[in-house]
Amino acid sequence: MNPDNAAESTDPAERQGKGHATPSRKEAEAANRRPLVANDRKAAAKAARDKDRIERDREYHAMKVGDVAHYPVRERGPVKAYIRDFVDARWNLGEFFLVSAIVLLILSVVTNKWPVISLASMGIVYVYGILAIGDTFVMWFQLKKRLKAKFSEHTLSTERSLGIYAASRALQFRRWRMPRPRFDKHGNYPE
């Protein structure tokens, strides 16, 4: 059948069209109009909180199982994945800092009868903290060199935020890191 004659067809199966008239501009604008503030603010706030909670739960689950497509925005991208893999492959002094600080703090409280032991344990906490910070700087300089070789200079324009991202991951206990490390053992450096 000739497409020019489609409108003239009497058979309803051959007739084409959307089945209704195009709404006027006034009608279309009225259909899209919504109030800026909901009539029931408490219900709207509760619905927004529930929506945010569902989104956070989905992102948290994605980070636990390694579903990269549903990671939070701050965790996405090849540069962030490379940083995570590099930090997870390396033994970092910072990842044991929290545990050692708690143990040494308890030791200093328990041994308060012997001020020398208490003072020594607090000194060890400070020395270990300084070493952990120094190790984090060494890690960042190694990682920065690798990032510049692997990715373009334009990609690394947010160098400061990438350094903070790497340092915050390096200072966490490996088992508690989110997104979870891709490899079970240390030593699997990214290419």
Rank of each mutant, 00 (worst) to 15 (best):
M1Q: 09
D4T: 04
D4N: 14
N5T: 11
N5K: 14
N5Q: 12
A7Y: 06
E8R: 15
P12N: 11
A13I: 11
E14S: 14
E14Y: 05
R15D: 05
P23F: 04
S24C: 09
R25Y: 09
R25W: 07
K26W: 04
E27H: 04
E29L: 13
A30P: 00
N32C: 09
N32F: 03
R34E: 10
V37A: 10
V37H: 07
A38V: 06
K42T: 11
K42D: 09
K42W: 01
A43V: 13
A43Y: 02
A45F: 03
K46R: 13
A47V: 03
A47C: 03
A47D: 10
D50C: 06
D52W: 02
R53V: 01
R53F: 03
R56K: 06
D57F: 05
R58S: 08
R58L: 06
Y60A: 07
H61N: 10
M63C: 01
V65A: 02
V65Q: 02
V68D: 12
A69D: 12
V73E: 14
R76Y: 08
G77Q: 06
G77V: 05
G77T: 03
P78Y: 08
V79F: 11
K80R: 15
A81Q: 08
Y82M: 05
I83M: 03
R84D: 05
D85V: 07
F86M: 10
V87P: 01
A89G: 09
R90E: 13
W91T: 05
W91A: 10
N92G: 08
N92F: 04
L93Q: 05
F96V: 01
F97G: 00
L98E: 07
V99W: 11
S100R: 09
A101F: 12
A101D: 10
I102E: 11
I102T: 10
I102G: 04
L105M: 11
V109L: 15
V110Q: 08
T111F: 09
T111E: 09
N112Y: 14
P115Q: 13
P115N: 11
V116T: 15
S118A: 15
S118T: 11
L119N: 12
S121Y: 00
S121N: 10
G123N: 07
V125F: 13
V125D: 04
Y126R: 06
Y126C: 14
Y128A: 08
I130A: 11
I130S: 05
L131F: 15
A132F: 12
D135V: 04
F137E: 09
V138C: 06
V138T: 12
M139Y: 02
W140D: 01
F141M: 11
Q142Y: 08
Q142R: 13
L143D: 01
K145S: 15
R146K: 14
K150H: 14
F151V: 05
S152Q: 07
E153R: 13
H154C: 00
S157Q: 13
T158Y: 06
T158C: 12
E159R: 11
S161A: 07
L162D: 04
L162W: 10
G163F: 07
G163Y: 03
Y165K: 04
Y165L: 07
A167D: 05
A167R: 08
A167Q: 03
R169P: 00
R169L: 02
R169T: 01
Q172Y: 02
R175V: 03
W176M: 08
W176Q: 06
W176L: 12
W176C: 00
R177L: 00
R177Q: 07
M178P: 00
M178K: 04
R180Y: 08
P181C: 01
P181L: 03
P181F: 00
D184W: 04
H186A: 13
G187M: 01
N188T: 14
